[in-house]
Design a protein around this nucleic acid. Structure first.
Length: 589
RNA sequence: GCCCCCAUAGCUCAGUGGCAGAGCGCGUUCUUGGUAAGAACGAGGUCAUGAGUUCAACUCUCAUUGGGGGCUCCA
């Protein structure tokens, strides 16, 4: 446990540490304000976070937004008083006396292993705390209480639900304002908003939450992505398959899903007296394809890939746009291989992930390696082997990664790759998971060089994770302004007057023959308005057709970034667009 | 699932215990134009659903459904 912070001065601190202390002190000041407002409040914990701080409380009533304003005002008073913040180590006994009426603090004290605990105070306020504070309450910078949320005590859903107050805090008011401004801009890129504005997808709230309807433009985006995926997989040595959407209960009994994943599955449907289930995963089906005949080591590695649509019962509170849904399509594949092939296969998958994400210009991909949990199937030698294969692959690829010790599934270790949405929330997309369970349960085998039967290794992997989630993130990533090859509408042809329609159609035909997706805006509107409409739809190119262009068999080209490329002869325009489309697609492999 | 908030036109949102509103979008007509909004007129609503309180409920209360922010979960 850290001791008092008073020996350090701000000048010696790097700014991260300084900000951390400001946020931590602000949390204390918040707790002080809450205790003034509610003398009976029970206060729990209040750490700094990425954009500020929070503190959890048990209160006699629910907080309202007005309460936040009042609390903010009280906090400001404490800041103005510029009280000195001091800390010391005290015995657990004296701590228990101080916090005699604070059950959460007492629980924390009990769990601290040292003989002494940290005790911090400013003015009348005191808190159990390991330290890391500013010297006075006047040094906390610019803050704004932001929102109220619920949070379980110690993150356990069996415990009391506390009220959490989040505050934003930055060194200066300018930085705080800037952060709030940026956050507001980020909201403009929310995929749910853009999905509606750009007519990409919808959910039908009356007819089942968490189910995505792909509108023509969203479907086009998806088709382009799936086509690229299929091409890359075919070239990458995968075999594409299709499997059923439902299976008899016997399949799910063998796979263990009815034992371990029943809560995540939709209820059974009766078919001729048997229970059938919608698939929550594709694995058991791919395994059937493998097991359909006796396999030789010569056939391995076998890589079976499918854009497999699965349905999972997700609890209502977790659904979120396209990012967490109840029906989604995994770009799933199962690699079945010999132990000798393992390292190459894992390398191949990790590189494939990076190539595919590279196609969409995702930067700063971070990985998590999750290792053996306490309850696990398979022997430890296998686990060691698999974990080493994953770790080596990730290091050879030069990725930064975190290790989540014990975070693996009971059936095998895994690597996850996370992408970040517009509001900074991380979502698991790509994943590479070993499975020591299903090969056993389904008694998978191959005949080795030695003529004996062997158990193969099996790796689950998904590059996008789910098409829905990936495209949701992708919409935010591009802010709806997709690169030309992905744009649902690549060009909008804008005739200036009705007499230019004929040439507009001639240009359209040439572009269409080259496979370019376009619309002709024939509305009885001014050109300026048509440009505006195309602009709002984030159409990459606007092709203006007037007298001059009709004369020259050309179009005046405007980009959605507002650039005027001037008049381009139609044939050259086709060439230009095709080149740009191909270069976008060929970012891959 | 849990805590809090929310639900009014296709969208974004005002509003009141006593006749339902705006902007955008949509339709019609006029306008035929040169790089982000031409004009006029018009159509759109069981104010999410169900119960309750009231002379009277879109408005207050409760429940349900759905949405949002978190928490938990995501073998």
């Amino acid at each position: 446990m850290a001791d008092s912070n008073t020996s350090l001065h701000f000048g010696e601190l790097n700014s991260d540490e300084q900000l951390f202390r400001m946020r931590h002190s602000a949390a204390h000041i918040l707790a002080e304000a809450v205790l003034e407002m509610f003398p009976d409040a029970k206060y729990a914990i209040g750490p700094p976070v990425d954009d500020g701080f929070y503190y959890d409380f048990e209160l006699p009533r629910s907080l309202t937004p007005e309460d936040l304003d009042a609390l903010q005002t009280r906090m400001t008073q404490s800041v103005s008083a510029n009280l000195s913040i001091s800390g010391e180590q005290i015995s657990k006994e004296s701590a228990r006396e101080i916090f005699i009426n604070q059950p959460y603090k007492l629980e924390l004290i009990d769990d601290i292993e040292d003989d002494t605990v940290g005790h911090f105070r400013h003015g009348e306020f005191q808190d159990l705390c390991r330290g890391g504070h500013t010297e006075t309450t006047g040094q906390v910078g610019a803050f704004k209480l932001d929102r109220i949320a619920g949070a379980y005590w110690r993150g356990n859903e069996n415990n009391t639900m506390l009220q959490r107050i989040y505050g934003l805090l930055f060194t200066t008011q300018d930085e705080l304002d800037e952060y709030q401004e940026l956050r507001e801009q980020a909201r403009q890129n929310d995929h749910r908003r853009l999905g509606r504005e750009l007519d990409l997808f919808s959910t039908q709230e009356d007819y089942g939450p968490g189910l995505i309807y792909w509108h023509p433009k969203g479907a086009r985006l998806r088709i382009e992505i799936e086509d690229a995926w299929k091409k890359a997989h075919t070239e990458g040595g995968y075999d594409l398959v299709f499997t059923p959407h439902i299976g008899r209960s016997t399949l799910w009994e063998t796979s263990g899903h009815l034992d371990f994943f029943a809560e995540g599955m939709f209820s059974a449907m009766d078919v001729d007296g048997d229970d059938y289930y919608l698939k929550p995963m594709n694995c058991p089906f791919h395994i059937q394809i493998y097991k359909n005949t006796l396999r030789s080591y010569r056939e391995l590695p076998m890589r079976l890939a499918e854009l497999g649509t699965v349905y999972r019962y997700e609890r209502s509170g977790v659904l979120h746009g396209m990012l967490r849904v109840r029906g989604f399509t995994q770009d799933d594949a199962h690699i079945i291989c010999t132990p000798e092939q393992l390292d190459d296969e894992v390398d191949g998958v990790v590189n494939f992930v990076l190539e595919l994400l590279g196609l969409f210009n995702f930067q700063n991909v971070s990985a998590t390696l999750s290792t053996r949990p306490e309850k696990a199937v398979g022997d430890s030698a296998q686990w060691d082997r698999a974990e080493a294969a994953l770790k080596d692959a990730i290091e050879r690829a030069g990725l930064t990664y975190e290790v989540e010790a014990g975070g693996g599934a009971f059936y095998g270790p895994k690597i996850d790759f996370h992408l970040t949405d517009t509001l900074g929330r991380k979502w698991q997309c790509s994943t590479v998971q070993f499975d020591f369970n299903l090969p056993e349960r389904f008694d998978m085998s191959y005949v080795g060089e030695d003529g004996e039967s062997h158990r193969p290794f099996m790796v689950h992997r998904a590059l996008f994770g789910s098409i829905e989630r990936f495209i949701g993130i992708l919409i935010e990533h591009y802010g709806g302004a997709f690169p030309l090859w992905l744009a649902p509408v690549q060009a909008s042809i804008i005739p200036i007057a009705d007499r230019h329609l004929e040439h507009a159609e001639a240009v359209a035909n040439k572009l269409k023959q080259a496979g370019i997706r376009l619309t002709i805006d024939t509305a009885k509107e001014r050109m300026g308005n048509k440009i505006r409409r195309a602009q709002l739809q984030k159409v990459p190119y606007m092709l203006i057709i007037g007298d001059r262009e009709a004369e020259a068999d050309a179009a005046s080209v405007r980009t959605r970034s507002g650039e005027d490329l001037g008049e381009i002869v139609t044939d050259n325009l086709v060439e230009k667009l095709i080149t740009e489309i191909r270069s976008g697609q060929q970012n891959i492999v």
